[in-house]
């Protein structure tokens, strides 16, 4: 599998990272180096092997589905780059 410029641009878009057009060739090269390294995994016989979901065999803990925390909007907003009237503010999302 080789990554072309179009794929590199698509991945950048999916990751929501702006990559200038002139930086795409170098990025695609790096992807190809890393993916070339990862390709080794194809040598392994994984027939009938379950993909790991949890490294320790324990079952995740359960608790009642109830509210346990809250009522601290000032704390939640204290690090926001732009907070107004108790809300996070972002650029307009609808025309």
């Amino acid at each position: 599998m080789s990554i072309d410029l179009e794929t590199a641009a698509k991945v950048a878009k999916l990751a929501r990272i702006k990559v200038e057009d002139d930086a795409l060739p170098a990025l695609a090269d790096e992807f190809n180096t890393i993916l070339g390294f990862i390709e080794q995994l194809n040598e392994v016989d994984v027939d009938g092997v379950e993909p790991m979901t949890s490294v320790t065999p324990q079952r995740l803990k359960r608790r009642e589905d109830v509210v346990t925390d809250g009522h601290m909007p000032e704390k939640i907003l204290s690090n926001a780059p732009d907070a107004r009237e108790g809300f996070f503010a972002v650029p307009k999302v609808m025309e």
Partner: peptide
């Protein structure tokens, strides 16, 4: 990629 890697992880463990 991802599922194959998780299977290899099972084998490593």
């Amino acid at each position: 990629y991802y599922n194959r890697a998780r299977k290899v992880r099972t084998l490593i463990k």
